[in-house]
Structures are given as structure tokens and as C-alpha cells.
Design a protein around this nucleic acid. Structure first.
Length: 639
RNA sequence: GCCCUUGUAGCUCAGCUGGUAGAGCAAUUGAUUUGUAAUCAAUAGGUCCGCGGUUCGAAUCCGUGCGGGGGCACCA
């Protein structure tokens, strides 16, 4: 007698041990058809696994995350099978499930081409049509190792050797000819994965993720429960491509890159205007929050970087500069040492703390060439940096006010979906454990106070202190890590910072590093992609274009444009001899939020006709009213 | 940095197996004076990323350097 408890608590009694398919069959015919895998007492199992004891069982279909995961996993295997059938001699390594799909890493001399990808995909489809059976076997360790070595699969043999001795080795057969070492579970047969998969791209990947190892070829695929989900995913990719800030940056005439300075931005007028608006906004907010803005040199003597520890730890990412008299300077990769030097000027009292110093500092980091990516990863960027010097007792309150400021500014820029990542002490660290206790507790308290979703990354903190990272979720669901708040228990001491405490003794202050955008450049990239280029009116670089219907109205259009500019709104007038349709199209494509049409009607009534981006409903308004309304709209949100 | 891929007019791209470049848009000029997403015509525009090689001859083939893209590794 085997009692099977279902998720709803119902118990089904079987005369003999049963497998998952039989359980599903008993529940309903349709479930039996859709069943992919099951869990037995919480453990995922193949459907043909025989349940000998009373257990609680749950059957999963493609609608469950567990089912979808197995579909992707099987797709990876079937891909490997197809590859080995088509390209004998190719070695298999690993092939896990990832977000939205799967990949498999292969060792093969010749590179896979995109044509190969088509062939592989076709062969996969054939294997699905053949509906080959999948079966699990347990192998002897030694047998497995010698077997895989014999057939030339040295990577598989290596994987087996690294599996702990007490673990069972399972081999999955797909049909009669192909098999792979795998933990499972898998589907009953290849037909179950369906056809909602697609091979996406080939790339290089290091064996075991280590750049000292040889490079393998990774084929990425995406896999879904049905065709509709696959199409939805492909559409999402397309949408992301449309929003690509590199493409929009060109169309909107914001910036460009060029060979003479890879990874550094050439800002055009409009892009720079956007850049400055963000800085203006930050200045406004920071002044209200009690920050003092400073500025420190871009180039500093090597000795300072040696003292701060950067020279040793991060030297390979630093640009250096040798003067004609052979002195070595470093171009700053971070603002903190310079800021501490400002703090060090003059005697500081405990009454001066907390002292908040902000700096829009341009830093240079020699990033590996392969890491560069538009505005998102550059070699020269501007941080909206600030350092807060405070006492240990002030860490909590300062952290709280930093988090509040950060979240509020994000919200005003259109990001209200924020996740926090909290990282505590790593194994290798500096500083007293008691101070670590204090700063960790302080930061965690700040995290909890936000009431936002957060994750704890154990041991991921910097060697000099714990940290919080702020992750933004954009309009199409992508996450971007931007802001950071870090406690530093190291640098002030290294650079000899101190203040005079109540009792007259000298003490070393705690320093908090914080940035909201992290990198202005990168944040602008994120803003562009979040809004698909359609930035809110107040932050748009060129806000209004005035278009006369014909050149009879040029003078009026010029007058309107001047009055708008006088209000501090960025506005131009388009007097080219193109027709109205042409101009509307041109300015819409470059994402100008407001177009004003001026013709006879407008001149007669001293008004403008407003056409907003993506909204061809027109609205006529008296010029005075327009000026009043849009001057207000053009203000940065503040509180 | 590593693997794959790619580099032709301001932009987007065509140019098959080697015979020294072509389109659309943009620009300029002229005509047109237009009421909500491309008016018409003419003109001009190119060390085919750099360097080297093969060849009678290279945008095309080979080598190398630089840049871009997709990943991997990196991201203080």
C-alpha cells in the first residue's frame, strides 16, 4: 500500500509502488498529458521514478517554474546531442539552465558559425519529433571516469573526479546512442520539450569560469513553455534593442565615441545639457541636505596613492602620467583620497561632525577593453560622490538620511522600484570587530527603515567596511546597480584624518562614501533606456521647437521662441524651408517633447498650438498661459 | 585581457567567386510656402579603419595593429 498525499491534502491510495506518471493519470487525464516532472517530499524527481513509500507528491507542468526549468534543461541536453551528432569529436562540458533559457559549453577547434546554429536548431527539432526516451542510470564512479576518458571526453571525466565521493553518479540516456552525466531530473522523452526554443548566439567562455583556463564555445538558447511565450520574449529583446542608448544617443544628437579615446564620451550640446541638468538638480538637493561641495585635483602624486593603498591594490586599473622631469603622478580613479586631504586642512572639532563633502569628480579607470559598453561602462566618468565624516555614533542617523535622499531623488527621476543589496564583513578585512559590529548594525537598520525589498550578501563587503548597494528596476524590468553607501573604517586613518573630541583627545573619524548615480554617464544611459529617449520635460535637453506653418509667420515664431528662452526653457525655432509634416517628423524622431505650431490662427490670437511627443492631439493655448504653465513644468522636482 | 564577429559617403546599408565604388536619407543650390510623422529637381560628397604582404591588378585574399558589437573574465 502506498499513500500519496497531493498538494491539496487529498490522499490517493495505491496497491503497489507507483511512478509519477501513474499518479498524474489518477488525478486527471489532462494532467497526465501535461505532466513534466514531480516532487516527492519536496525533492524533484523524474516522472518514471518509482515511489515505494508513503509520500507527498506534486506534479509539475510547463505552467510551473519547475516544469519550465526542466524544459530548458532538456533543451540544453538535446542541443548537446544535436551538436555531437553533427560535429563528431566535439567535447561536452556543462549545460545549465539560466534566466530565460539555457546554454551548453563545448570544446571544439573550429568555431561554430551562425549557419551551424541553424543546423543545430534543425537537428534539435528532429530529435524532438523523434520523441526519444530519456532514462536515468546510476554508474560506478571508476567506470564513469574511465569510460568518459576512453571516449575522449576529458572535461566530463574531470567533472566526475570533482564530484564528492559519497554522491551518486547519474547518467541520463537520451535515446539509445546519446547520454550525459547529469543530476537530473529530466522529462520522459524529447518530445515533451516542445518547439518553443531558439538558439540565440555563440560566445567564448572559460572552462570553469577561470580566465587562466582554455576557452570553450558557449551556445546560448532560449526556451519556453509555448510559442506564445517565446514570441513575447523575443519581442522584449526587440524592445530593449529599440531603447539602446547608443542608438538613441546618436538619433537624439547627445554624444558620440571615437577611436582616439575608447571608453570616453564626446558630449554634444544636447547631451551635455542633460548632464548639467542632472548636476544642477543634485546641487539643489544636496545643498538642502547640508552637503558642502568641493573639488579636488585630477592628477595627484604617486605617494598619495601609495599611502591610500590604491597603488598596491588597484594600480593595474590606474592611468599614470610621467612629467618631463620624470615624476610619476596618477590620474584619480576615485575621489576619496583628495577629499580626505580637504578634511585634513585645519583642525576639526567633534562639533564639525557630521561633515558632508560632495564632489562631482571626474575619475579615470583603465577598464579592460572587453568591458567597455557605450555609456554604461566607460574609462572616464563623473561620480556624484560625497564623503561624510562622522563619529561611530552618527553612522546610523547619517546612513538613514543618505538612504532617504537617494530614494527620493530616484523617485523624482522616474525610478520608484528600488531593491537594496546589503553586504557585510568579508574574511579579509581591516578594522576592529567591535566597530564592524556597530557599522553593520547601523547600515542594516537603514536598509530596514526603507521597507524595500533587500538581499543580504554575506561576506561581500569591501575590506574596509560594510556597504549598501541600490538597484533600480527600469520600465522594462531590467535591474541596474547605481547608488552605493559604504562605511570606511580604513582610509581616514591611513591618511591621518582626525578630529578633537569633547575630552580634548584626537580621534579618527568614520567616513561614509556615497554616490547616487554612481556614474553620471552611466546614469544618463539608464535614463535614456528607461524612457526610451522620451525624457520628462524638465530634464529634456531641447525642450521646445517652434515651427511656423509658412515663412509668413517666421517673425512670430521667433518672438515666441525668444520669450520661451527668456523663461529658461531650451527652445529653438525651425525656419528651414521644409513643410510642416517634415519638421514634425524630424523633431519627433529626435524626441523633442513639445512642438509649437504657429500660423495665422496663432498670430491672430497671440497663441501657440501645442503638439506633444507621441500625442497628435493638438491643444491651442494663449502664449502667456503657455509660458506660465511650462515654466512651472520645467522646474526640477524638489522637496 | 580572451573567444567569435565586424569596420565602405555625415547616417543606414549594397558591392557574387579579385578588374581601383553604388543606393536611400542627410548636406548644398534652386523651385515650392506648405496646418500635424518624409514636396520636387539638380549638385557635391569616398586615403573602402591603419600598416604590411600575395597578385599584372585588392574594398574584396592573407598577416598584423586599432576601433565597434555579442559573450567570458574583470568591475576598487
Amino acid at each position: 500500500m502506498t499513500n500519496i498525499t497531493l498538494p491539496d491534502g487529498k490522499i490517493i491510495k495505491f496497491e503497489k509502488p507507483v511512478n509519477g506518471s501513474e499518479v498524474a493519470e489518477k488525478i486527471s487525464k489532462s494532467l497526465a498529458k501535461q505532466a513534466l516532472v514531480m516532487s516527492v517530499n519536496g525533492e524533484l524527481k523524474d516522472l518514471y521514478h518509482i515511489i515505494k513509500e508513503d509520500s507527498s507528491v506534486k506534479i509539475f507542468t510547463a505552467q510551473d517554474p519547475e516544469g519550465l526549468e526542466v524544459i530548458r534543461h532538456d533543451a540544453a541536453h538535446i542541443m548537446a546531442m544535436a551538436v555531437q551528432e553533427l560535429y563528431p569529436g566535439t567535447q561536452v562540458t556543462i549545460g545549465p539552465v539560466i534566466e530565460n533559457g539555457f546554454y551548453y559549453d563545448f570544446a571544439r577547434k573550429e568555431p561554430f558559425t551562425s549557419e551551424d546554429l541553424n543546423k543545430i536548431e534543425k537537428r534539435m527539432s528532429e530529435i524532438v519529433d523523434k520523441d526519444v526516451k530519456v532514462r536515468r542510470e546510476v554508474w560506478e564512479r571508476e567506470k564513469a571516469i574511465s569510460h568518459f576518458k576512453k571516449i575522449g571526453e576529458k572535461y566530463k571525466a574531470e567533472i566526475i573526479e570533482s564530484i564528492p565521493k559519497n554522491e551518486e553518479l547519474t547518467i541520463y540516456h537520451h535515446g539509445d546512442t546519446w547520454y550525459d552525466l547529469c543530476r537530473g531530473p529530466h522529462l520522459l522523452s524529447s518530445g515533451k520539450i516542445g518547439k518553443a526554443f531558439k538558439l540565440m548566439k555563440v560566445s567564448g567562455a572559460y572552462w570553469r569560469g577561470d580566465s587562466n583556463n582554455e576557452m570553450l564555445q558557449r551556445i546560448y538558447g532560449t526556451g519556453w513553455a509555448n510559442k506564445k511565450d517565446l514570441d513575447k520574449y523575443l519581442e522584449r529583446l526587440e524592445e530593449a534593442e529599440k531603447r539602446d542608448h547608443r542608438k538613441l544617443g546618436k538619433e537624439m544628437d547627445l554624444f558620440h565615441f571615437r577611436e582616439e579615446s575608447p571608453g570616453s564620451v564626446f558630449w554634444h550640446e544636447r547631451g551635455w545639457s542633460l548632464f548639467q541638468k542632472l548636476i544642477d538638480y543634485m546641487r539643489l538637493r544636496q545643498r538642502k541636505a547640508g552637503y558642502k561641495e568641493i573639488n579636488t585635483p585630477e592628477i595627484l602624486d604617486r605617494s598619495l596613492w601609495e599611502k591610500s593603498g590604491h597603488w598596491e591594490k588597484f594600480g593595474e586599473h590606474m592611468y599614470t602620467s610621467t612629467t618631463p622631469d620624470e615624476k610619476i603622478f596618477a590620474i584619480k580613479p576615485m575621489n576619496c583620497p583628495g577629499c580626505v586631504q580637504v578634511f585634513n586642512q585645519g583642525l576639526k572639532s567633534y562639533r564639525d561632525l557630521p561633515l558632508k563633502m560632495s564632489e562631482f569628480g571626474k575619475v579615470h579607470r583603465y577598464e579592460p577593453s572587453g568591458a567597455l559598453h557605450g555609456l554604461m561602462r566607460v574609462r572616464a566618468f563623473t561620480q556624484d560622490d560625497a564623503h561624510i565624516f562622522c563619529t561611530e555614533d552618527q553612522i546610523t542617523s547619517e546612513s538613514l538620511s543618505v538612504t532617504n535622499l537617494i530614494l527620493d531623488i530616484y523617485k523624482n527621476l522616474g525610478f520608484s522600484d528600488v531593491i537594496l543589496k546589503y553586504s557585510d564583513r568579508p574574511e579579509v578585512r581591516v578594522g576592529d570587530d567591535k566597530v564592524w559590529d556597530k557599522s553593520e548594525a547601523a547600515l542594516l537598520e537603514a536598509v530596514k527603515a526603507t521597507k524595500l525589498e533587500y538581499s543580504i550578501n554575506k561576506g561581500e563587503g569591501a575590506f574596509y567596511g560594510p556597504k549598501i548597494e541600490f538597484v533600480l528596476r527600469d520600465a522594462i524590468g531590467r535591474d541596474w546597480q547605481c547608488g552605493t553607501l559604504q562605511v570606511d573604517l580604513n582610509l581616514p586613518e591611513r591618511l591621518g584624518a582626525s578630529y578633537v573630541d569633547k575630552d580634548g583627545s584626537k580621534k579618527v573619524p568614520v567616513m561614509l562614501h556615497r554616490a547616487l548615480f554612481g556614474s553620471l554617464e552611466r546614469f544618463i544611459g539608464i535614463l535614456i533606456e528607461n524612457y526610451a529617449g522620451k525624457l520628462p520635460f524638465w530634464i529634456s535637453p531641447l525642450q521646445v521647437v517652434v515651427i511656423p506653418v509658412s515663412d509668413d509667420f517666421d517673425d512670430y515664431a521667433k518672438k515666441v521662441s525668444n520669450e520661451i528662452n527668456d523663461k529658461g526653457i531650451n527652445c529653438i525655432v525651425d525656419l528651414k524651408s521644409h513643410n510642416l509634416n517634415y519638421k514634425i517628423r524630424e523633431h519627433s524622431l529626435s524626441k523633442i517633447p513639445v512642438l509649437l505650431i504657429c500660423g495665422k490662427k496663432e498670430v491672430d490670437s497671440n497663441s501657440v498650438t501645442i503638439r506633444k511627443l507621441d500625442n497628435n492631439k493638438q491643444e491651442n493655448m494663449k502664449l502667456d498661459k503657455f509660458l506660465e504653465q511650462y515654466t512651472a513644468l520645467s522646474q526640477a522636482p524638489s522637496n
